[in-house]
Design a protein around this nucleic acid. Sequence first.
DNA 1: CTGAAAGCGCTTACAG
DNA 2: CTGAAAGCGCTTACAG
Lengths: 341, 341
Amino acid sequence: MKGISIKDIAKQAGVSPTTVSFVLNGKAKEKRISEQVSKKIQKIASRLKYKPNQLARGLRTGKTKTIGLIVEDIANNFFASLAKVMEDEADKHGYKVLYGSTEDNTEKAKGLLEVLKYRQVDAYIVTPTKNLDKEIEQLKATSKPVVLMDRYFPHVSSHYVVVDNYQGAYNVTSHLANQGYKKIAIVTITSDQIQMKDRLEGFTAALKDHHLPFNKSLVKKIPFELEREAFNTEIKKFLTSIKGLDAVFFATNYLGIYGIESIRSLGWEIGPQIGVVSFDDHDLFRLHSPSITCVAQPITEIGKNIVEVLMQELNHPSASPQQIVLEPSLIIRASSDPGKK
Amino acid sequence: MKGISIKDIAKQAGVSPTTVSFVLNGKAKEKRISEQVSKKIQKIASRLKYKPNQLARGLRTGKTKTIGLIVEDIANNFFASLAKVMEDEADKHGYKVLYGSTEDNTEKAKGLLEVLKYRQVDAYIVTPTKNLDKEIEQLKATSKPVVLMDRYFPHVSSHYVVVDNYQGAYNVTSHLANQGYKKIAIVTITSDQIQMKDRLEGFTAALKDHHLPFNKSLVKKIPFELEREAFNTEIKKFLTSIKGLDAVFFATNYLGIYGIESIRSLGWEIGPQIGVVSFDDHDLFRLHSPSITCVAQPITEIGKNIVEVLMQELNHPSASPQQIVLEPSLIIRASSDPGKK
DNA sequence: CTGAAAGCGCTTACAG
DNA sequence: CTGAAAGCGCTTACAG
């Protein structure tokens, strides 16, 4: 409220607010303000610890130096770690991040987009929910950069940064096959979105290439919004329903966590009795006994790429969308390779 | 940029912007605007999907409906989970959250406070670093509510929401003693801040009350900013240096994680050979084999309390600080009680 | 080389 | 019952 304004400085320096504005925005040279005046203004500004009011500036220029970040769940390790990387990167460019979680709920996502819009964020980083394609299209029309993350809409031309989910799933499934596992199931989320579709397709393609059996009874889809208890119940019911099952692939980190919990409560021995692999890495997977094989996403790289694309688009909007697909890496651990410690 | 403004509505309705503003801010009655005009304006506004420009409103009223959140590390499970709760709670009151991580670095914290200040956030939620007391005092002078979390400054009168760190540490240490462990060490962070001090004091008090040996060689302090490798090296060096050590208390969740990793790489058997307990809960602690005993903080309750205090202060600033101390809960698991599964 | 003035989109005391 | 006008703190075309 009671901040120092450009007027205060102008008064003290005996010049107009215009001149102060020019100097403080580094336009002294361009506007040919004399060295003397320029120095004087700088000195006064730093003495008074002047900080430009971002609201006023934003109202005038339309730029708020704020990025809107919409993730599925900020409490999830994957998104939280990514949020940290993006915070750091954005900070380097003087941007702050306003966040929100969709919980994979389209209505919540729409609400978040709306709020971010009338808060005039300069750009959006969005983990879209299903049916959010219309809103993403509309957003593009506002000429504010939008970068999708984790997933995208194949029929919408937009910037995005994702990993090769198909290849990741293919590799980890092939790895199970190579280890000698014969009957492999997958537990995934009830979702037709591209990232889950690709993981499922990578899984089935690998089974086919390794001449392993595949049918619908090997696929379990669970709705995202269930509680932990319900997830565990569903997973246990599924796993015990398959005769001869000897390995299972959990398609996200939280599914992997629920999966471990479920398998342990069944009393099965992970590794020898049932091979276990998961998408995404987690402290739990690294330190569990036995440790859990996973397909890890390169979090730092993803975060840096997202912000880089955003900054490029803010500075020089490009005609064609930047679509970056990073490679996830297979981390082989004891849960699929009992020989390992 | 090209948004609908109050002027557009005024033009279409054939009234002044003033009237539109009154109606849209629910002051129609108070300002005795006729039902007719009021209805008409409402209709036009919703037809045009009018969204008030928050910048303009903020510039005028000084309210941005934004909360600044400063945590130690948004990627850390504890802070990320809390961020989720606070996001939800703030949302109920129409507030959005701008976040930043200090990495326990005072300079970063100061920078964050400064940025949040000139972005005109309405209120602050701060996990203070050491030596941030001056800045917190100054902030109070601006009459924007500030709630400290996780820790506070004993000599600064401020709102805060924390857990009883002393009692939590006391209880978990007593539990170890009751289990028959005789030589108990603590691994903590190099920090004189209240939360770590209280945990250390709770630890030593419990040892004393149980007539167990205590001396400085049983306390290891590690600087926060070390890398994972270095943490593990330090922990291993420390644990192997104590003759007859049979239990260890890790004073934060990340220390607990590093600790488990270290102990395992030493080849020690957690539980029978060395009792292990940690502050904070984590998926890893719940699902590790053996599972890890911990002092869990009531995350949802903490988050709700923080936002509640903030909202009360925003609406009716109170004369005296609200200082809330919640009870953490002891969760006994196999790492300190080998009998457990 | 420097400044007066308009305007970004609101809110609100004041006037009638 | 309603509106004209000022002002929040900036930036920027325009003028000199």
